[in-house]
């Protein structure tokens, strides 16, 4: 089942009190060397059907209008991932045709 991963982060210029609290805990427990921690959100949306341009446009809109609030957050990534079974079957198909070494990666990212 294809999975769509949407990553949302608080805007860089905003104070992130959660990240700051974690950074404080790291320092208190002797984990030094980290200059900052920021906490964001990862959404996983699953679909039954194929990932096509319509779906991608739909996901883009959902990510910008519902999963994030542009006043306080940025959508920092939308990734389309496929299950291991699908990756295996695609690999089998790819192996059966001439491999020119320039095939697209199985997981698409933009």
């Amino acid at each position: 089942m294809p999975t769509i991963v949407v990553d949302v982060m608080p805007k860089a210029e905003l104070l992130d009190p959660q990240g700051k609290a974690v950074a404080g805990a790291l320092a208190r427990t002797g984990r030094t060397g980290f200059t900052g921690v920021r906490i964001g959100k990862r959404f996983e949306l699953t679909v039954d059907g194929p990932i096509d341009d319509d779906l991608k446009a739909n996901v883009q809109q959902i990510a910008e209008e519902i999963l994030s609030n542009s006043v306080i957050e940025d959508v920092v990534g939308i990734h389309y991932e496929q299950s291991n079974a699908e990756l295996a079957s695609e690999a089998a198909v790819a192996a059966s045709v001439t491999d020119d070494g320039f095939g697209a990666p199985a997981g698409e990212t933009h």
Partner: peptide, 17 residues
């Protein structure tokens, strides 16, 4: 009201946490 875009701006976690 801010999430519905009837008012501008947004509300975030208190700065002192």
């Amino acid at each position: 009201l801010t999430e519905a875009h009837l008012l501008e701006g947004g509300l975030i976690r208190n700065d002192h946490g």
